[in-house]
Amino acid sequence: MPDLIEIAKGLLESKEVSFIIGYTKDRFGRVKPYIAKSVEDANNLMFDHHSIHNLAVYLTRLKIPENGRVGIVAKSCDIKAIIALIQENQIKREQVYIIGMNCSGVVTHSTDEWKKENIQIKCKYCADKAPMLYDAVAGTAEPFEQPDDTQEVLMQKLETMSSAERWDFWAKEFEKCIKCYACRQVCPMCYCEQCLAEKNQPQWITTSPTPAGNFSWNIIKAFHMAGRCVGCHECERACPMGIPLTLLTRKMGMVAGKEFNYRHGMAIDQPTLVGSYNFNDNEDFIK
């Protein structure tokens, strides 16, 4: 199998893509997003279990040339975000050259070791770690020990709580929010040119990081992810206050799956859940 650098060099040399969104290591060995623009740059590309960032976010942040194409290095979880962006008409399939990576699970912090306790929970549910939509594939997946789903335990605990207790749980979590909007900026599915949180005529969301302002922000962000979140966990990774944001989005994803048999980011030609209407849609679970 050709390796990542070779594929990237070929693409940049033939000018098939104008740049490649990938990962590199800085001189301390920390992995970070990187844009390779020349054959020379391609030598700096790499991929390993620290390649945690979901680079699909850059597909809407960077300018993709109108009729051009860009390359992107993507794990199978990131590919879901790319598919979702295509489903939502934010990019066209032909605008991206997907270099799918066979992945061995990723760990959250650049200094964390690749071991069970540090591997992200999402990796446990990643079906076969092999990319599902791609133009080229690189890398080898190594077997790894599955992490414990500590989130599921917490979810079950939340299910058994009364609504007052749940309110208290979230009030305590949201209180911590400092409105840095890292959760929004890092999210591949948050691509609005003007976020609702920035509108002030009328002001839908109070800008203050106060209990009221935080509740409206965090709940609205979560609502906007209903049936749209692809479960990349980037919001939670980016949150400096350690708020368990994906508890909400994961739960909504589960509801979308159970009630509508829908999962976002699985097929580019599938109509989106929120963008399509079906007479048989279940609604009696909405209270």
């Binding site: 990187y34 976010v57 400092i178 929004r184 900026q185 890092v186």
Partner: peptide, 15 residues
């Protein structure tokens, strides 16, 4: 080069 990867949150300023 920095601006193209910076996603524009305020994590850096707020911490």
């Amino acid at each position: 080069e920095t601006g193209e990867v910076c996603i524009g949150c305020a994590q850096c300023a707020f911490v």
